[in-house]
Design a protein around this nucleic acid. Sequence first.
DNA 1: CATGAATGAGTTTTCATTCAT
DNA 2: TATGAATGAAAACTCATTCAT
Lengths: 190, 190, 190, 190
Amino acid sequence: MVAAVEDKAEAILHAALELFAERGFHGTSVPSVAERAGVAAGTIYHYFASKEALVNALYKQCKGAIQAEALSNFPFDAPPREQFRVTWSRLADFALSHPKEFAFLELHHHGTYLDAESKAIETRLVALGVATIQQAQASQALKMLDPNLLLEFGNGAFIGIFRAAMAGRLPFTKETFMTAEQCVWEAIRA
Amino acid sequence: MVAAVEDKAEAILHAALELFAERGFHGTSVPSVAERAGVAAGTIYHYFASKEALVNALYKQCKGAIQAEALSNFPFDAPPREQFRVTWSRLADFALSHPKEFAFLELHHHGTYLDAESKAIETRLVALGVATIQQAQASQALKMLDPNLLLEFGNGAFIGIFRAAMAGRLPFTKETFMTAEQCVWEAIRA
Amino acid sequence: MVAAVEDKAEAILHAALELFAERGFHGTSVPSVAERAGVAAGTIYHYFASKEALVNALYKQCKGAIQAEALSNFPFDAPPREQFRVTWSRLADFALSHPKEFAFLELHHHGTYLDAESKAIETRLVALGVATIQQAQASQALKMLDPNLLLEFGNGAFIGIFRAAMAGRLPFTKETFMTAEQCVWEAIRA
Amino acid sequence: MVAAVEDKAEAILHAALELFAERGFHGTSVPSVAERAGVAAGTIYHYFASKEALVNALYKQCKGAIQAEALSNFPFDAPPREQFRVTWSRLADFALSHPKEFAFLELHHHGTYLDAESKAIETRLVALGVATIQQAQASQALKMLDPNLLLEFGNGAFIGIFRAAMAGRLPFTKETFMTAEQCVWEAIRA
DNA sequence: CATGAATGAGTTTTCATTCAT
DNA sequence: TATGAATGAAAACTCATTCAT
């Protein structure tokens, strides 16, 4: 059955997500993924050619999900302040509703086991962010600094908040993220 | 003899630093550390009881170094704006002069293999940061938000800048960090 | 239906022949046989009880084919010189027209996975050869040496020529074999 | 100790020789080699980088041994008849005193796992054989046929005799081989 | 102190075989 | 009859750790 196939692959991806997010790629064994997914070790190799293929599939799925949530219907015509708020809010929604996915992406975006395609997704996203920032700079809404600096600044701040919230040092709520949003805006606005 | 002992231990720690920072704890084998350190695999076990003991020793050493550089002679009597600038500047100096150490700390502060003592250092540092922030808030220099939020915000932004610089997406210079410093200040000041 | 059944079984045997001849029994996986035969892995087990049963079936088929080609209408009444030439010529024809079958037989006649029946075929053939040689010796056409020696000698020489021809070190032609035939005759004749 | 090291490596090579000769490369597992050698499975990888490296090392050692036995002090100045007898006799001595080595070489010289260096040894030997045959032809001692045919003919016959003797169908004695030698000479002489 | 050979449990991966569909 | 997903045992190989030297 198609449903069964998708269920198995999904179960494997889900188990892998949890374990990779917790212990990292090298800290997670294929049998442990199989056990948590409730399948035999060999079964994983019916769906994924190798452990590397598994992380990459997971990475693409998660990156796709965050992109879909964060960038669909981007308010191109809204003013920069609004664009920033919406983007940040959507990222917060994603992080709140998919903390494991977010943690996984955060932990693995530098891995040597990521293939070219996986890395390309990240690169495209950064390029999109930079372009949006440049537009906002053109309308004098943002500081005239290196767009990469503004981007990485916001990105880093978001991740810092997320990590602290996951560790219990901050409430893991929308409010926490939106409070930070206001701060970041003050940091980057012209 | 003492010098030789320290040399070997130091060589092992240095090799471990590079490899752990590059490939992570689980991605680094003890023999590979031995090889890079120019010692036999067994020698590592004269200085460190286990691979876990090795990371922890390294973690403590690096955390101690960053603490020494960032917090010695902290300008307790300076105004908050100055305190922040000095702290950020010193962190930047450390990150610029010890990028491997900084990357290592960044990559490992969540590891399940860190022992209680290692985690305690981090906790103490956070407490110190929070206390300093609260003082600055008392003098109405900073926003009246959860001090943890302000702390993690700044921390995250710093790390974001550092990572981007290491990846070549930003110039790896003091200027990059100090430009970001001004932004962060605008984000957190009252 | 019957045609289809034979087709599938035949396809499996053909695929197995190629792969076993190329890579040997242990070097060939059942799924790879299935893939080359264009059937599902499970289908193989409808026709053959196991991988061992498959090699044995193939072995018997090939041995039967070579026997049919080489021994049908054996010229019992011809003089030994003629009998030898005919036998050798027919073997050459078989090797030239069925190189994979010949190579397969050559590669597998010693396998521990061959069952008693498979081995018995070989034994019977050898006995037949020995008997024929003894007759020729009785008529003083051949050297009075151990018939097994004469048999294995010719057999080995044939295989040596075949292998070298397959490897491209000799032309893979009837002429090559018939030239060798003359040599062998001079080696064994009285 | 050097002796111990050589002993272990030698024990592994010896165990591998027996098993590879019996069951072939793919039919032999590394743990089974370890068990027969009396070492742990992991120990094999201290001496040989991989299972392939192990066969190749063994192949080179055996090929070297047979070359040393068969070709040292080759009687370049003797007449062809004598050269042939000496060579065959030495090969027979080797096969009789090192049957496993001979069987191993016979079984593996076509393997896809043999590296370039291993294959080169074989190629060089064949070239040497061909050159010697050509000289003998120049002095009209041998038939004026393709030297490769004469070489492979003799080689095949030798192997046929060897195999039959190993299988118990012929006495495994020097006499068996030397009787065959006389036959081969009659096959190839002018 | 220092070595590095040796271990054996653990890793990733393959594969002969089964079985629900 | 045919499929191919699923299994789990076993393969090749790695590695943290020990210990005789």
